[in-house]
Write a protein that binds this DNA or RNA. Structure first.
Lengths: 140, 140
DNA sequence: TATTGTTATACTCTATAACTATA
DNA sequence: TATAGTTATAGAGTATAACAATA
């Protein structure tokens, strides 16, 4: 209750909440849900990932994953490509439209966020990254 | 795309994901959903909050809030008390059972998390808190 | 008129378990 | 037997808008 680390966890949650508040409106602008955006963002700059890999990265469970991927497939933002070496698996990849959205959505979010970090210099980033990396490793 | 702050945001999200992974099983142990836990945690150690205040703190919108509160009321963990000064509003408060759960759930989560911060000393916490506070203010 | 909270709707996410196909 | 992904189900969260009561 009076444990010191609770303060850090609360701050962490508040940071995340602020970020979500900021990104929310932009995500919806692209007519995506959070889960869908998460998938698009995770697939961006990859050659494709299996459902399992996507699940590990996004914490979306496999039963849910099928539904999320179905909706993204209907929107023609992703495609499933069956894996020839192991026919149980399939690779999920961004379609050209998916890539286009990825490449237009991110600069958009970037533009919005950029000025918020205006007062960070290189050393500030280094310190922040060090602290977050340490925290991540402690939690992981 | 190559913006430096993206690395920090990614780390932030990964920290939050790790924390959620850890707390998830414990939340479900108390037969609560994330949203429900969020409400209980927010109400803990308060005299009661209005729906509006709860919505601002948890990012749950008012339409959703009614449903979440209904389910918590059915579980007898919260109660709504109409406000006499402004009869449009009502205060949402933990019931004795709700407080009991709050007070038993948190030490539980604390116990689980404690050893993860074993290698943090006071200075580590100070640095981490400073960085997270700075980040929160930048995002907010 | 504006605000607080509820109701209603349609959709999405979620957990879980049973299932199919492949390994 | 184990694994990858789908299907099925029931419940919960979500956005949105219309609504009632109160200010």
């Amino acid at each position: 209750m009076s444990e010191r680390y609770l303060r850090s966890i609360r701050l962490l949650a508040e940071c995340m909440q602020q970020f979500e508040k900021l990104s929310d409106s932009h995500i919806r602008q692209f007519e995506l849900t959070h889960a869908q955006f998460d998938i698009i963002a995770t697939l961006g700059n990859t050659e494709g990932l299996t459902c399992k890999q996507l699940g590990e990265k996004t914490l979306i469970t496999k039963g849910t994953m099928t539904g999320v991927l179905d909706r993204l497939e209907i929107k023609q933002l992703i495609q499933r490509v069956q894996c020839n070496e192991d026919r149980r698996r399939s690779f999920v990849r961004l379609t050209p439209q998916g890539e286009k959205l990825f490449n237009s959505a991110f600069p958009h979010v970037i533009g919005m966020m950029k000025h918020r970090f205006a007062d960070y210099d290189t050393n500030d980033f280094i310190t922040l990254e060090q602290q977050l990396t340490k925290l991540k490793n402690s939690l992981g």
